[in-house]
Amino acid sequence: MSAPIVTSLDELRRATQAWRRAGQRVGVVPTMGALHDGHLSLVRAAKAECDRVIVTLFVNPRQFNSAEDYDKYPRTELADAELLGPLGIDALFVPDGAQVYPPGHATTVSVSGITDTLEGAHRPGHFDGVATVVTMLFNMTQADRAYFGEKDWQQLQLVRRLVADLKLPVEIVGCPTVRADDGLAMSSRNQRLSVTARQQARALPEALLAAAAAIGSGANVDDVLTQTRETLAQNGIGPVEYIELRDSESLRPPRPCHPRRLLVAAWLDGVRLIDNVEVPPAN
């Protein structure tokens, strides 16, 4: 049995208004489809904490930096609905582009500071697209809680900042990265890796974890990052767009005794891979 697909915003709002009148807690899991176990872990977390759960599916054109990447993004709506069926969600909301960006749409949501670095520096405009569509999805679903994966760490911090700054009545829940058996962080884009590249890709999380352990043990950060770039290159992964140690919350240079995060973005087989891991704070 497939999850119930809702395409009309009016229909969704009738349902959410009834749920809210009944005092039920509504959770939402925003996605762009092509679902995998990482997405399903977010849905399970939402099901455990909420009375009603909505999964949204919208491939947002405004967060892509090239038309080619947008066109290549996998669209698997019916398969996604089948995958979600056993989890018992209340709605798979699949709005078309005209509902999200109707003619004359002229509003963009932008979060400064946290978006200026890392992904933001390499994908200009990407986070404006994310912030805009997330704000609209929160308004469309009227959810009490929203669930995001930690794999997209910078995106998670962006959404938290957005909600805090705009005083939006939704709690943001971050959920741990789900990894394949070889350690690679699950991503819809992984489907585009060749068999050979998929085997090479395991070197990315291995190198990242080794670097985090070395930094946590007190090794020189610059030396570790240089060695990690060399390790990735030796395994056919590159170019490396960035590998940086940052403050976990602000994504600025790390501060003493504050949580730290090691983040990476690199190319393999024409696919852009991102990942991050926690690093113990410096003394």
Rank of each mutant, 00 (worst) to 15 (best):
L204A: 00
L184H: 07
V195P: 14
A203I: 08
A180L: 13
S187V: 02
A207M: 06
A214K: 05
A185C: 13
E206N: 11
V195A: 14
A211K: 07
R198N: 00
A180R: 10
D181I: 07
Q200Y: 06
L184M: 03
Q199A: 11
A212D: 13
D182L: 03
G183D: 04
Q191T: 02
S194W: 05
L208D: 11
Q191E: 11
A197H: 11
V195G: 11
A213P: 12
A180M: 09
S194A: 02
L193C: 13
R198S: 09
A207C: 05
S187F: 10
S194L: 08
A201R: 08
L208H: 02
P205H: 01
A214Y: 02
R192S: 07
S187A: 11
A185L: 11
A210N: 11
Q191D: 10
A214C: 03
P205Y: 09
T196Y: 11
G183I: 08
V195Y: 14
S188H: 09
D182M: 03
R189E: 00
A197F: 09
A201H: 07
Q199K: 14
Q191M: 02
A211G: 09
L208Q: 13
L184T: 01
A201F: 13
L184F: 01
V195H: 14
A203C: 11
L184S: 02
L208N: 03
N190H: 09
L193M: 09
A211R: 05
A212C: 05
R192Q: 08
G183F: 13
A180E: 15
A185D: 04
A213D: 15
D182R: 01
V195Q: 15
S194M: 00
R198F: 00
L209G: 15
S194F: 07
R198M: 09
S194V: 01
A211I: 00
S194G: 10
L193V: 09
L193D: 14
A214R: 09
A213M: 07
V195S: 12
D182W: 05
L184Q: 08
T196F: 12
Q191S: 12
A201P: 15
L209R: 13
R198D: 01
A185V: 12
Q191C: 07
T196I: 08
S187M: 07
S187D: 00
A211T: 00
R192N: 11
A207K: 01
T196S: 15
D181Y: 06
Q191K: 07
A212W: 08
A212Q: 14
R192T: 03
A203H: 13
A212S: 15
D181A: 14
A207G: 07
L184E: 01
P205N: 01
N190A: 07
L193S: 10
G183C: 08
A213I: 05
L208S: 05
S188F: 02
L204P: 00
V195L: 10
A201E: 10
Q200E: 05
R198E: 04
A201Y: 06
L193E: 08
R202C: 10
D181M: 11
A185W: 14
A212H: 06
A213R: 10
